[in-house]
Nucleic acid binder design. Structure first.
Lengths: 208, 208
DNA sequence: TATTGTGAACCTCTTCACAGCT
DNA sequence: AGCTGTGAAGAGGTTCACAATA
């Protein structure tokens, strides 16, 4: 389920605040969804709640991690170590929860050799020599739009079967490759679209 | 519709390649969706296709822009000018299509005063003095997790009614504020989740 | 002929509502 | 009494399939 990572984030925050238990209504409010949905989602993992009390935060977290494969080992390679790539390297979520950054690549000779987050940035043409880069690896594209497709092809060529694209360019991949696109500008557009619709609703409540 | 920005991105790329027309099947493949869905989505905007031919790329782009409010003016303020914030400032999608970066803020005195993308980073306590910061403004939170809620409260206090959160922390906002969360680590988890499920399906095809 | 636009069927996700457990 | 887990109803989104049309 696509909402599990959201619950995970919430539970993790709750745990940091020493909250031991939580019930579906509270989770629902924090996740901006309906309480029944939370219960249904969580019941998919098994019956981990206690009637009358709620869910044990720590235990639920463990169960979600299991479901998300966070106990597996997912090697990650990041291509394009500009501002965005650097932000990703240093982002907590990229080196925990089963993910392990294997190598960083960049085409720019000025960037190659630089140390970022404890790893040395390597030249793109050494991609094929990366040890541990099997078909379970996830490739992250954080290059400018112009280089994105070429980089993607290179990743696919060395056997990467899952790609997370942050470049503002539509990519094409063979059918066996899983592709997910996060366009930062798109997110902004989605937000303004909802805001627009909401305002329209305010002006003409009958339409709601 | 939440897919319009995706079509927009594709059309924009096609236009850059001098493609003048496109039909629903092609759009569908690039957007990784079904052709009927594309047609239904687009027909919502009006009847802009030509039977037997397809859609005019440039014209369709204009129509999507109109629907997305890209002809409106959306002032954007970004708080947290680290690697991620800097990437956002420089990202094409944040200064085009109706968006206009109004001001940049950071709490770190070492960052305040620095020039990023043609704008001078300002101190957080000057937030309230930003001219043009009405209730149509969008606030972007790109701070570390620890500062995110506090920054959000400050944005809400000065009248911002739409917030895009990139910090890995669940935020709470009053009901009248629109909140959207992009957690970069979450995206990675969603990808690995699908990959996990796909592999499970390969091992036991009966389950699919 | 090629492709759109769309009613209708279908399906999946969401929400309700409550029995069942603690 | 409080809250989960879930069948059933409902809503919304997706896909089919084809008439309409360039």
């Amino acid at each position: 389920m696509v909402r599990l990572p959201v619950y995970r984030r919430i539970l993790s925050d709750l745990l940091a605040e020493d909250r031991r238990t939580v019930h579906s209504e509270q989770l629902a409010e924090l996740a901006q969804v309906n309480a029944a949905k939370v219960r249904k989602d969580l019941s998919l993992l098994g019956s981990f709640g206690t009637r009358g009390t709620g869910y044990d935060v720590g235990f639920l977290l463990t169960q979600i991690d299991r479901a998300l494969g966070a106990e597996d080992d997912w090697p990650v390679v990041i291509v394009g170590i500009g501002n965005l790539g650097t932000a990703l390297v240093n982002s907590e979520g990229f080196s925990t929860r089963g993910f392990r950054i294997l190598a960083l690549f960049d085409a720019d000779p000025a960037v190659v050799g630089r140390e970022v987050g404890g790893l040395t940035v390597r030249s793109m043409d050494t991609l094929g020599e990366t040890p541990g880069l099997g078909d379970s690896a996830i490739g992250v594209v954080a290059t400018p739009a112009g280089a994105a497709q070429q980089v993607t092809d290179a990743l696919v060529a060395v056997g990467v079967r899952a790609i997370l694209n942050f470049a503002p360019r539509v990519l094409t991949v063979p059918p066996q490759v899983l592709l997910r696109h996060v366009d930062l500008g798109t997110e902004l557009q989605v937000l303004s679209f909802f805001q627009l619709r909401r305002r329209a609703g305010e002006r003409s409540p009958a339409a709601g």
